[in-house]
Design a protein around this nucleic acid. Structure first.
Length: 848
RNA sequence: GCGAAAGUGGCGGAAUUGGCAGACGCGCCAGACUUAGGAUCUGGUACCGAAAGGUGUGGGGGUUCGAGUCCCCCCUUUCGCACCA
């Protein structure tokens, strides 16, 4: 041990020691209470960036905290190693994706180890290895067995830059999640997973996790699923048996419907227009809309456009005849692809009606609480003949609505739905916005879809005992949007499992989000060759106690993994609905983009990246991690600046130097006996216990920045004591040892290497981790303030203070406030109206 | 356009949830030690004022003995959704 602080020596020493002793090995048969701490597994791009460092530093701090508290902590890591960048490297530079990926993993694993993150490396997994994607394929077949995987031709999202299909979640907002390129639409035959079958559960399950997940993420998920309650209503086409079914959430406005509007893609359209002179015009219009849509969504709202079909339909409630239009603002993907247009009570319908001079009829009137109380009459609340220019979209009271007049919307909606059902022209209905998950990718670097096609037997799943379907060594990487696997005859040509005749393999691979939907279950049992994992072992560790990652995955990974868990529950692998109890979405680490005022996430292409290795080299892993955690609350954006990190080094060095200074004195035992603490020593002891209490509770809420601040405060208090090791009394030594040992233990989650080093210097052999919990427990007596400095206000303004014992009575406090000289001077000549005494807080004298 | 969240020193950010605003750190200023200082240590650092004192948490109003915190209006920023019937 050296008196000077050389981080690289200390860090490599302890990394070696931890590794040799296997201290981060989690054992499934350990009887202590478990804690599963998980960070989102990285894509092996080649280099860690500071965002990773922040992610792992947070998870590591929590893992250490729980370990020191005596929990059996599982803290694993792995690689989300299938995906685009590997293939791009192959296309651009001719490198084999497998070699590229493996090399990157080697480098990044080294970086993680140099950071000293306390992972259980024996559980490391990688998605691109056959022993992992074997189980992706297994899950796919299970879904196929249950009808949850299916193939269909549909309009899919296509990223023109990456030349691949994207799921709806990956193209949210109309742009590619990875490269932000606007997506186009293409008709392709694709594999889908029926996530829509779980739509209801994905909404309902939110209740189970609402205490542990950020509200923001749950709101996005709930919006994404887009549950909507309403009704289907059938409008019979005049002079025909055809019915046009619409979905509405506002059946109470149906008497205000002045048109039916259909999507240009509506399948019924062709039939309805049979023999109509308008057919060519309408088809031309539909084609125009399709072209606009395929080009990708424009920024800003498109003008509403439509054409009258000449067809008429009958409103089943009123018997009224309505024109049927086709318009670009009605989406085939939502509801039934047709709507009833109620201009008076829907903004979009209003805009459309105004443009094409459709009638606007008010059927809902605003209603006040007084009116509700006063038993409203059919005419209450407004003049129906008045011209309306703005849609009134709130609930209100029905007018001009036949038998339903005078009812409140809330009452009319369920009654009218039931009426429609009774008379067989409609029914209550729930619709969802979420669409099935398209998982086919025309890519090489992914898990092959385990299905073959036989001329005789058609589509045949690969039998479970023939898994995994292994990716070939290589392929021709052209980046043309064709599956590279299609160009590998050894792969494509196979034997039909049923008839043993010649057959062709499916040449698409699965979305990499399949891999990440269940990876944290594989950590529990990574070597299992018979199943993805043993349910009994999983029971021991799951659900995940704390998950940490960026919120960019709020409606991608995080919704897929919830879906996957519910599926695993249905096939008996797990016995719960929600995989993650608590979720932390950490803020991004940003850096100024060279030559601009913009702060953006660090990336190679922007040239604003910071290399963690350089930080480690210059300041040490401990200081780098400490700084990242101290610089901002974990959920905030962290704007990188190198000036602050020196403060972290300075702090660590000062603590280290102090330990060194006291080492000798502290390692000699002091005689037990009655202790008489000096006022300064008492102050230090109180500070120590207050700090323990604060940090312990801060950790529960992951307020890591304030924990570090509290450690610094405690250290400053020790410095203020300014004791000389050679002269210090036994009591001082006791107080200082208590403070320093607590400080070292509580510093461990932030700077584990130097903490271990200092713990050893304090005379403890065997390292900080032990069977008995080391985390200090605050003495409530000492953590409480010994005396209070209570502010005295006059008319709400601070005028003086009084020192009092914590248990001072209200009367005494009032008396001492009124006796205060300053206060008396201010009272002089005024009337004391009242004196407010807040126990332990303050006194406010109100004068006039 | 709709929705949500947030506006506190030069900067990152604290504030036991209605009770001493600015903890902790960065930066800056002064001093000490030094051949030297981009090292270290000590002190200072919201604003106005020589001081006493006054003013201060985006702006305006309100509730309260007391408001960074609660309520209303406005402004700004960030994020999410963008025809979801």
């Amino acid at each position: 041990m050296d008196e000077k602080y050389f981080p690289e020596q200390i860090e490599s020493k302890w990394q070696q020691r931890w590794n040799d002793d296997g201290v981060f090995h989690a054992k499934s048969d350990d009887p202590r209470e478990k804690f599963y701490c998980l960070e989102m597994l990285p894509y092996p791009s080649g280099f860690l960036h500071m965002g990773h460092v922040r992610n792992y530093a947070i998870g590591d701090a929590l893992s250490w905290f729980k370990r020191l508290q005596g929990f059996n902590v599982l803290h694993p890591i792995g690689w989300d190693s299938f995906g685009q960048p590997a293939e791009q490297a192959a296309i651009k530079r001719g490198i084999n994706p497998r070699d590229w990926t493996e090399n990157n993993i080697v480098h990044m694993r080294g970086q993680m180890k140099r950071l000293g993150i306390s992972y259980d490396w024996s559980r490391e997994i990688a998605a691109h290895r056959p022993d992992y994607y074997h189980w992706d394929q297994w899950f796919f077949l299970k879904m196929l067995d249950r009808g949850l995987a299916y193939k269909k031709v549909s309009q899919v999202n296509w990223c023109p830059k990456e030349e691949t299909v994207l799921s709806n979640e990956q193209s949210s907002g109309g742009i590619c999640w990875r490269c932000s390129t606007p997506v186009e639409k293409r008709d392709l035959e694709q594999w889908f997973l029926r996530i829509t079958d779980y739509a209801e559960q994905l909404v309902a399950g939110i209740k189970q996790i609402e205490d542990g997940w950020p509200e923001k993420v749950l709101k996005r998920q709930s919006d994404w699923v887009g549950r909507s309650e309403g009704a289907y209503i059938d409008f019979t086409v005049k002079d025909s048996k055809q019915k046009i079914r619409v979905f509405t959430t506002r059946i109470d406005t149906i008497y205000g419907a002045t048109a039916i509007v259909m999507s240009p893609d509506h399948p019924l359209l062709n039939e309805l227009l049979e023999g109509s002179a308008l057919k060519p015009d309408i088809e031309a219009f539909a084609q125009k809309v399709r072209t606009q849509k395929a080009a990708g969504r424009e920024v800003g709202e498109e003008e509403k456009e439509g054409v009258n079909t000449g067809v008429l339909a009958i409103n089943p409630f009123s018997g009224e005849t309505l024109p049927v239009w086709v318009a670009n603002y009605v989406l085939m993907e939502y509801g039934t692809g047709a709507i009833m247009s109620v201009p008076a009570h829907d903004e979009r319908d209003m805009e459309f009606a105004q443009k094409y001079s459709l009638p606007i009829r008010q059927v809902i009137a605003p209603v006040t609480h007084e009116q509700i109380a006063a038993e409203p009459s059919p005419t209450t609340g407004g003049d129906a003949s008045a011209e309306i220019k703005q849609a009134f979209t709130d609930y209100g009271i029905l007018i001009n609505s036949g038998d339903w007049g005078a009812k409140l919307s809330e009452v009319a909606i369920p009654e009218m739905s039931a009426f429609a059902k009774e008379h067989r022209f409609g029914e209550p209905a729930v619709t969802y916005r979420i669409r099935d998950w398209g998982i086919s990718r025309q890519r090489f670097w992914g898990a092959p879809v385990p299905v073959v096609y036989c001329d005789k037997d058609g589509m045949v799943p690969v039998p479970y005992d023939q898994l995994p379907v292994v990716l070939p060594q290589s392929a021709s990487f052209t980046g043309t949007g064709e599956s590279p696997l299609a160009g590998v005859p050894e792969f494509v040509n196979t034997e039909c499992p049923k008839c043993h005749g010649p057959a062709r393999r499916d040449t698409d691979t699965m979305d990499t989000f399949v891999d990440s939907s269940w990876y944290f279950f594989r950590y529990l049992d990574p070597g299992n060759e018979a199943a993805p994992f043993d349910p009994n072992i999983a029971k021991r560790w799951t659900p995940v106690d704390q998950y940490i990652g960026g919120d960019s995955h709020a409606v991608m990974h995080l919704i897929y993994t919830r879906f996957w868990t519910k599926f695993m529950r249905d096939i008996g692998l797990v016995d719960f609905d929600e995989p993650v109890k608590r979720l932390l979405t950490q803020g991004m680490v940003t850096n100024r983009v060279e030559g601009t005022d913009e702060w953006k996430a660090m990336s190679k292409s922007l040239g604003n990246g910071v290399d963690p290795d350089e930080m480690i080299k210059a300041f040490g892993a401990d200081a780098t991690r400490l700084f990242v955690l101290f610089a901002a609350p974990v959920e905030n954006e962290l704007r990188w600046s190198e000036t602050g990190i020196e403060g972290a080094v300075r702090f660590l060095r000062r603590v280290y130097t102090m330990i060194w200074r006291w080492q000798e004195r502290l390692s000699n035992p002091i005689q037990a006996g009655a202790m008489e603490f000096s006022p300064d020593a008492r102050t230090l002891r109180r500070k120590t216990h207050q700090t323990i209490a604060k940090i312990t509770s801060d950790f529960e809420q992951l307020h890591l920045n304030t924990s570090v601040a509290a450690l610094m405060e405690l250290f400053n208090q020790i410095v203020d004591l300014n004791a000389d090791p050679a002269q210090a009394s036994n009591e001082d030594v006791f107080a200082i040892r208590e403070a320093l040992e607590s400080l070292v233990i509580m510093l461990t989650p932030f700077a584990p290497h130097i903490a271990e080093e200092m713990w050893e210097a304090l005379g403890h052999a065997g390292g900080l981790l032990s069977e008995t919990p080391r985390w200090p427990v605050a003495d409530p007596e000492l953590a409480r303030r010994e005396e209070l400095e209570i502010p005295i206000q006059v008319n709400g303004k601070l005028r003086s203070r009084v020192i009092a014992a914590p248990d001072v009575s209200e009367e005494d406090l009032r008396a001492s406030a009124l006796a205060d000289e300053r206060v008396q001077a201010l009272i002089d000549g005024h009337e004391v109206v009242k004196v407010i005494v807040v126990p332990r807080r303050l006194v406010n004298v109100v004068i006039r």
